[in-house]
Simulated scan of single mutants.
Amino acid sequence: MTQDPDLQKLTEVMEDMPIGMFTTFGPDGPRAVPMARQQVAPGAEMWFITARDTQHVSALEENPRAVVTFSSRDAWVSLTGTARVVDDQPKLEELWNTFAEAWMPEGPEDPNATLVRVDIERGEYWDTPGGKVASLISFAKAKLTGTTYDADHGVVAPGGGPA
């Protein structure tokens, strides 16, 4: 089976974007917090390690919708999906790293440590190949010619929904 080129590009763009803004929709409205992604399975899911006693975990219990956005100097990604808390000790141990350890020094055995799995339903990316210089040239070209900024843009629906 051939992978969707936009999905392949989205996964590639995200390689150097480990930290994203994780947005939940709780009783007080949208709230975004920075979170480090642990694993991205191209096409379906994303994993995060978090503390069970956080506002974003409480918000997910009320409304499982989530948005995760990532950015770098020359690329941007927006993902929407359904998130849920997953109590899976072997998976938690598999994904555990020193970054998680900084927030939860008791390690994966900490009873407050848990996982959040986001099943991605839709994703979009904007990429300006060539880095900073190409971006500056594209901005200048757009300003001088009245054309739009040159960026690769793609929409994917890895969860099977409409793109």
Rank of each mutant, 00 (worst) to 15 (best):
E101S: 09
L144G: 11
V57C: 09
V33L: 08
K9Y: 05
L92V: 03
F70Q: 02
G107M: 02
P34K: 12
P90W: 03
T2C: 05
D150M: 03
A44Y: 13
E93N: 10
Y149C: 02
A36C: 06
T2N: 13
D28W: 07
M17K: 10
W96K: 13
K91M: 13
A142F: 04
A66E: 03
A83W: 01
L115I: 05
M17T: 08
V86N: 09
E93D: 10
H153N: 13
D127P: 06
P162N: 11
V156I: 04
S138G: 12
P27L: 00
K141N: 06
A36T: 13
V77G: 06
T147C: 05
S58W: 07
T80A: 05
G43S: 12
D119Y: 09
Y125I: 00
P105T: 02
E61G: 15
A157R: 10
G159R: 14
P42V: 15
V13C: 01
T54D: 01
A100T: 07
A102T: 08
D110I: 07
F99I: 15
K91F: 04
D6I: 03
F139A: 14
D28M: 10
V156L: 03
E12G: 07
A142C: 03
A134I: 00
T82P: 03
K141Y: 08
F25Y: 13
V40M: 10
R65I: 00
G20Y: 13
S78I: 00
V13R: 00
E93A: 04
A100P: 02
A142L: 00
W103D: 01
A140S: 13
F70K: 04
M17S: 06
M35D: 04
T145C: 03
D127R: 13
E101Y: 09
W47N: 00
A36M: 10
T128A: 03
D119N: 15
P129G: 01
A163R: 12
G154E: 03
E124F: 04
V57E: 08
K91Q: 14
G160K: 14
N97D: 15
L10Q: 09
G81A: 12
N112R: 14
